[in-house]
Nucleic acid binder design. Structure first.
Lengths: 203, 203
DNA sequence: GAAACTCGATACATTATTGTATTGAGTTGC
DNA sequence: GCAACTCAATACAATAATGTATCGAGTTTC
């Protein structure tokens, strides 16, 4: 260990580039952002960028890996800490706000990334696979929860997961252009409706 | 009127540029597409492009106006021709496939455009307004239908519209990266569930 | 049918963007 | 403490993209 570190570590630089890229992508879109703009937003030159990533694609892929890993980690963690459903959902509500990774923080960027993955499917099928794995984790949780909580005739448990995820991203998307009629809690409100609808089957 | 027209009309050219832009945007994203690439895809040079549009932004805005107008028109038309709900939904199902405007045809482009509008909100607030108007038309229809069909305690009619639209775009989005678990009829299936859930309230 | 007009092509100047090769300050191993 | 190494900056070459000005074939008007 040196006495005083005057140079940031490699990880610091990468992290700064992630944050900067997120800001630039949000403003200009992934396709519209130049490497120069990203590096500058992070307070670096292009040299720093190329020293850390081979290309814009590689940066994006690294950001995605990071995000999916963190997201899966958070979900597993919540699952361990909150055994009953109500607690779990409560924890979800409060957590959603202050996230460390840029992708989880910005709905616009989140959408942008999904489109990137869809478009990159041919070149990079592993990206879509990662997103599908994350998706499957969530749908499985929901399916299990639905099965255990009470039987239903309205919705089959396997289907419920797909529904919930579609609702989440659907509201996220619509909130971008119509926040007035799409309050932040729309998704959780829909979740509540869904739970009630499934409970009702016993009637 | 001349006897034989050897030069295409202005509208033909614009239409070709729309189609070409849709293809290029789908492949490269809006931000990643150059004017050169769009013009070339349409079989023109950049000269033709600039003769018809001031910039890429203007082209996109024209495409959007076109799409929203057509979409609203189609909805109103369907509404007139199919007075009862079941017919209306059936007509929706069959119509969804073969649409003339590029934006309605490509889910990826549809999403891309929403992001464009969200990002352009500050520069061009009228775009988001148009999308919100289209959105309100649909939610109003759903609200009215829900009110007339049978009262409910599970979902309030005003809320049902937002829910339906979120589902539509949510499934559209997820189908891009996970078509396996998101069949094309997912949205209609969810619609059916929703109808049943609302009907149940009487029990 | 000739003058005015339209629209896409071409040519050109300018700026943006990219990727690589090299340099040098900072760091680590021994 | 000095040799090897790391990493961001700088310089450079090449290409990509933009926007404008101009030209000419085709079209309309009278």
């Amino acid at each position: 260990m040196s006495r005083v570190r005057t140079r940031p570590t490699r990880d610091d630089t990468r992290e700064k580039l992630f944050e900067a890229a997120a800001r630039v992508f949000e403003e200009q879109g992934i396709g519209g952002a130049s490497i120069e703009a990203i590096a500058a937003a992070a307070g670096f030159t292009r040299g720093a960028f190329y020293s850390n990533f081979k290309s814009k694609d590689e940066l994006i892929i690294a950001m995605l890996e990071d995000h999916v890993e963190q997201s899966i980690g958070r979900i597993r963690d919540l699952l361990d800490r909150h055994k009953n459903l109500a607690d779990f959902i409560d924890a979800l509500k409060t957590m959603d706000r202050n996230q460390q990774d840029p992708l989880g923080r910005s709905p616009l960027l989140h959408m942008e990334m999904i489109l990137f993955v869809a478009r990159a499917e041919k070149r990079r099928p592993e990206l879509a696979k990662r997103l599908r794995a994350r998706r499957k984790l969530v749908t499985d949780i929901i399916e299990t929860t639905a099965r255990n909580s009470g039987r239903t005739t309205i919705l089959n448990p396997a289907w419920a997961g797909a529904l919930v995820l579609a609702l989440e991203d659907g509201f996220r998307l619509h909130r971008l252009i119509d926040p007035e009629t799409t309050p932040p809690d729309s998704f959780f409100r829909a979740l509540g409706d869904l739970q009630r609808a499934m409970g009702i089957s016993a009637a």
